[in-house]
Amino acid sequence: MEVRDLHAWPSTPAEAEAIQDRLRPMLELDVPGPANPRTVAGLDVSYSGDGTGTRLAAAVVVLNATTLQVVEESVAVGTATFPYVPGLFAFRELPTLLDALRALKSTPDLLVCDGFGVAHPRRFGLACHLGVLTGVPTIGVGKTAFIGTYEQPGRHRGDTSPLLHDGQVIGRVLRTRDGVKPVFVSVGHRTDLETACRNVLGLTPRYRLPETTRKADRLSRDALTG
């Protein structure tokens, strides 16, 4: 899979924020997303030492969007060199994630990140960054809200409520299972929020989290312990 080299990797938070500011105008937001993707890829990263270490494994799992069967897998192991700074977490994970993406033989129709897109203080989370570097429609699905306020959605699968920040809708709180905690969906690149939520529902036939995230999480954890 092709990934563009649009910047050098920063060593300071100021340099990282400057990269986010430079790339943010490249986002294509609120455009029609892939309504019927053929393949969807999940991306996730696991860290050694119960999540406290700097050694990490980045996994990409490509699924058939209809059957949710695995089409292709790729995993890369690396070391996080950028410090942990809220809002700049992508710079710890992206170098190794991009290694895993480059090893794919195919290009998925949609990337689903375990994280955030524009639901981010600088409106440029991991899903946005990945979308710009790959040119592929990308969304973020978070387990918790990073920023913003919201009302709880209804208790039934498919119920939603807006995620708000500074008077803007930055995502949706989506119930994927009846009576189970919701997930937080935000646009990354080249898709709209409505389509993003429909695709997330298609990826959650049995569990709260998308099958893409579940399978990528398992693959990344196995790579660290195997």
Rank of each mutant, 00 (worst) to 15 (best):
205 P>Y: 10
66 T>N: 13
201 L>P: 05
48 S>Y: 00
88 L>R: 04
66 T>W: 10
81 T>L: 15
76 A>Y: 00
218 R>M: 11
217 D>W: 01
195 T>F: 02
12 T>Y: 09
80 A>R: 03
62 V>H: 05
158 G>Q: 08
18 A>T: 11
203 L>T: 04
175 R>I: 04
41 A>I: 11
45 V>Q: 01
178 D>E: 10
224 L>W: 04
175 R>C: 07
92 R>C: 01
202 G>N: 15
112 V>I: 15
117 G>I: 00
222 D>V: 14
132 V>S: 05
77 V>Y: 00
90 A>F: 05
100 A>L: 09
85 V>H: 10
143 K>R: 14
189 H>S: 07
115 G>W: 02
71 V>P: 02
79 T>M: 12
139 I>C: 06
113 C>N: 03
217 D>C: 02
194 E>I: 04
204 T>Y: 08
155 R>N: 13
50 D>Y: 09
33 G>Y: 03
119 A>S: 13
213 T>V: 15
38 R>N: 12
60 V>E: 02
62 V>A: 06
12 T>W: 11
151 E>G: 12
32 P>H: 06
211 E>P: 04
161 S>Q: 09
122 R>N: 09
161 S>M: 11
40 V>D: 01
36 N>F: 12
166 D>H: 14
149 T>W: 00
83 P>G: 09
40 V>N: 02
46 S>E: 02
69 Q>H: 13
148 G>H: 06
198 R>A: 11
81 T>N: 14
126 L>S: 04
191 T>E: 04
148 G>W: 05
50 D>E: 15
184 F>S: 00
185 V>M: 06
170 I>V: 15
3 V>Y: 09
119 A>Q: 02
202 G>M: 10
8 A>P: 05
194 E>F: 03
91 F>C: 09
179 G>Y: 13
127 A>G: 09
1 M>T: 12
191 T>H: 02
214 R>I: 14
60 V>F: 04
184 F>C: 08
185 V>D: 01
170 I>S: 00
106 S>E: 15
141 V>F: 08
161 S>P: 03
71 V>E: 14
23 L>H: 07
112 V>R: 06
147 I>A: 06
24 R>Q: 11
26 M>F: 12
19 I>T: 10
68 L>K: 11
133 L>F: 10
23 L>P: 07
68 L>P: 05
194 E>C: 00
78 G>V: 10
117 G>P: 06
217 D>A: 11
135 G>I: 08
220 S>Q: 08
24 R>H: 05
